[in-house]
Simulated scan of single mutants.
Amino acid sequence: MAILHTVNKSPFERNALDSCLKFASDGAAVLLIEDGVYAALRDTAVTERVASALERVSLFVLGPDLKARGFAEERLIAGVKVVDYDGFVDLAAEHDKVQAWL
């Protein structure tokens, strides 16, 4: 069963991302939304963890949320893909289940 995991909390305030990555199975998709987009930025305390997760899961970031926080796509960890709202809907439709990590 393909699962889309969404994380909307900053990895610097909550452990939602760590929990998500711990339980996400190989081949799963993780979409970082709202303050969760901070996890996709290069040169942070979680960069190594997120980059390592890219070996087994697909990571996406919601572009409008990234832009709303003042970050350009150039700041993202290599391998993280940017999606817009239509892309979010496509990801949800492509997966059997959506799991929100709060």
Rank of each mutant, 00 (worst) to 15 (best):
K9W: 05
S10N: 10
S10H: 11
S10Q: 10
P11W: 13
P11K: 12
F12E: 09
F12S: 10
F12N: 09
E13M: 14
R14M: 07
R14N: 12
N15L: 05
N15G: 03
A16N: 07
L17V: 09
L17N: 01
D18Q: 14
S19C: 09
C20K: 03
C20D: 03
L21C: 06
L21G: 04
K22T: 14
K22H: 08
K22M: 12
F23D: 06
F23K: 03
A24T: 08
S25T: 15
S25E: 14
S25I: 11
S25N: 11
D26I: 07
G27R: 06
G27Y: 10
G27H: 08
A28C: 09
A28S: 15
A28T: 11
A29W: 02
A29K: 12
V30H: 04
L31F: 06
L31G: 06
L32F: 12
L32K: 08
I33Q: 04
I33M: 15
I33E: 02
D35W: 13
D35H: 14
D35I: 14
G36E: 11
G36K: 09
V37A: 00
V37Q: 01
Y38N: 10
Y38I: 07
A39T: 07
A40N: 02
A40I: 02
L41N: 00
L41T: 00
R42V: 12
R42Y: 06
R42T: 13
D43W: 04
A45R: 14
V46F: 04
T47R: 04
E48F: 04
E48L: 08
E48I: 05
E48C: 05
R49M: 15
V50N: 05
V50R: 06
V50M: 08
S52R: 11
A53G: 01
E55F: 01
E55S: 12
R56W: 02
V57P: 04
V57W: 04
V57I: 14
S58G: 07
S58I: 01
S58C: 05
L59A: 03
F60C: 01
G63A: 15
P64N: 10
L66C: 05
L66S: 07
L66K: 06
K67Q: 12
K67E: 14
A68I: 08
A68M: 10
A68H: 06
A68V: 10
G70N: 02
F71D: 01
F71N: 07
A72P: 00
E73R: 03
E73N: 02
E73F: 00
E73C: 00
E74L: 04
R75H: 09
R75M: 11
R75D: 08
R75W: 03
L76M: 03
A78T: 13
A78K: 13
A78Y: 03
A78R: 12
K81T: 15
K81P: 01
V82N: 01
Y85N: 10
Y85Q: 09
D86Y: 09
G87V: 12
G87N: 09
G87T: 11
G87S: 10
F88K: 02
F88V: 11
F88A: 01
F88Y: 14
F88W: 14
V89Q: 03
V89K: 03
D90W: 04
L91I: 00
L91R: 00
L91T: 00
L91Y: 00
A92G: 12
A92I: 10
A93Y: 07
A93S: 13
A93L: 15
E94N: 12
